[in-house]
Structure formats: C-alpha cells, structure tokens
C-alpha cells in the first residue's frame, strides 16, 4: 500500500495553485486534508503524476460571518475547526449538529470541508447539509470566480460541477432565520463510518404555528444528496404533530431507487428513509429542542 511515484508541489498562494492546475490539468490531484485521496493513492486506485498541495495557502482556511448574516467557510477549514466553532453553532445549527457524524475524530482533525464537498461521496454529510441550506459553493480558476448553488454542484457519485481548472475556495451558507429548526440523523455500521442512510432537515413554522418551509435531504441513498420533495410538500401546512410527521415521512422513499452494497440492500435503505425522515423531523419539530 505505497503510492505510485508522483511529484509534490505546495504553492504558497491561491494564484500559484490555480496556475499549476492549468499547467498539470488532468494529471494532477489537489491535496487538502488527504483523508480520501491518500488512501486511494496508497491502494494505487489513483495515480496522479502531480499532487498540488493546498496546505500552505492559509487564506483558504477560516470561518467568518458576513454582514449579510451569511456564514462563510474557507475550503481548507478542517472539520474539527467547524465542529468546535461557536460561530457555526450560532449561525448554522444544522451544520454544527452534522459535524460529529463526519467520519472519526482523527479524520476530522485533518480532513477539510472543501475536500469532502469536492470528493462528493454520496454518503457524506456535508453535501447534504449544503443542499438543505441552499449553500453556495464558490469556485475559482484563472478565469475568475463563480458561485455554484449546492443543488447544481453535486452531479453524481464522486462527480461535481467543478471544472478541471477550478478550485473550490469557499462555502457560503445563507443567514439562518429565527425560528428555523433542524434535525440530523444517520445510520452507519459504526459511528463515523459511511452513512447507509441519513437525513438532514430544516423546518420553519408560520405565525399560526403551521409548518411552512421544510427542507428534507436524504444522503447515502442514491448517487448524491437528494431533497425529498414529496415529504416536504406533504408536511407543509400541517400542524407538525406526530400524525402529520408519520404521514409525510411515509413518502420519503417515493421516486427513489436506493443503491445497494454489501453493507445495505436497497430494501433496507428504502425502509430506513421514512423512519429516519420522521425522526429527523421530530427532532426539528419537538418544542424547544435544539
């Protein structure tokens, strides 16, 4: 389990990194935390000729809140920093509650938010959170910057909208409205393993206490995180009580063809969808529960 020979280059600035991407293109892989890339290189499933190491580019890491109330997280920010951030806990409680589910402690200490999003593992938590929150993923290349909506970013298993010359540099989460509640739950064989099925949900109520905007995202089930539109529709306008939840969550598997692997059959994933959707929504709608 030793990687094939490669050249390692660690640019000090984003501009240099972008230029290197243009120069080496398809022959290069970008190294951030290395928690997914290095194992596949050790197994020689990936054999890049060049490794462009971003770890010297300090400006790519950091968590800040913009005047607009948006939460901006640099792509090179380590999971552990997000997990421990008081700002994140205030500004996006869904993201905060998802972080302890991201792999294992050692991986969170090194792995990065951007790395996880760009890797686009269908079982990963962060893509689901981005989708549930309508996050914007900011990409940069020598051609300039562009903002990509989460809904357009994840295109399939390990597949994103990012061009070969582009780097993900920042993730922006819209301001979290007062009164929005959230739920997050997943099933994995061991805590921290790849999710077999998970749900990230946000719910708002209107003045009358009826369910207004609801976002219910499933991950680990198909080739990318997906919003469960049927559940969201069925929930809207209800009182958010137990019967309403059970009824709405019952539609969670509608229209989905879950994948199957040796950890979980498609049937098992189909069974988990309504159960986890109901439980995530119950977390969100249980009074005063954060």
């Amino acid at each position: 389990m030793k990687p094939a020979p490669f050249d390692h280059v660690a640019p000090a600035t984003l501009e240099e990194a972008l230029a290197l991407l243009v120069e080496h293109g398809e022959n290069a892989k970008v190294l951030a935390g290395g928690q997914s890339l290095v194992p596949v290189m050790a197994l020689r499933l990936a054999t890049p000729a060049w490794l462009i190491d971003l770890n010297r580019i300090a400006s790519l890491a950091g968590i800040r809140q913009l005047d607009t109330g948006e939460l901006a997280i640099g792509a090179l920010t380590r999971h552990a920093a997000v997990e421990r951030s008081e700002l994140v806990a205030r500004a996006n409680p869904l993201l905060a509650s998802a972080m302890p589910w991201v792999a294992h402690t050692a991986i969170r200490n090194r792995g990065t938010v951007g790395g996880s999003l760009v890797h686009a593992d269908p079982a990963a938590e962060l893509p689901a959170v981005c989708l549930a929150c309508d996050a914007t993923l900011v990409a940069q290349s020598v051609r300039g910057r562009r903002a990509i909506a989460a809904a357009a970013f994840f295109r399939g298993m390990f597949e994103t909208a990012l061009g070969a010359d582009e780097l993900l540099v920042e993730i922006r989460f819209p301001a979290w409205p007062d009164g929005r509640r959230h739920g997050f739950i997943e099933i994995a064989r061991r805590h921290g393993d790849f999710a077999i099925c998970g749900i990230a949900a946000t719910v708002e109520r209107d003045r009358a206490g009826r369910v207004g905007d609801a976002r219910v995202v499933a991950f680990g089930v198909v080739d990318r995180p997906v919003r469960l539109a049927a559940v969201e529709r069925a929930l809207a306008g209800t009182d958010g009580g137990e019967d309403a939840l059970r009824s709405a969550a019952g539609a969670a598997a509608d229209g989905l063809t879950p994948r199957a692997d040796h950890h979980a059959s498609a049937e098992y994933r189909s069974e988990l969808l309504p159960v986890l959707a109901r439980r995530a929504l119950a977390q969100a709608l249980t009074p005063r529960r954060r």
């Binding site: 064989r189 040796h262 950890h263 979980a264 059959s265 049937e267 098992y268 069974e271």
Partner: peptide, 11 residues
C-alpha cells in the same frame, strides 16, 4: 447480526 442481515430477518 449486521444491520443488513438483522433488517432482512425482521422484514
């Protein structure tokens, strides 16, 4: 008694 096996038994 993996999750998948036990789920199949319950099913």
């Amino acid at each position: 008694l993996s999750l998948n096996n036990l789920a199949a038994s319950i099913r």
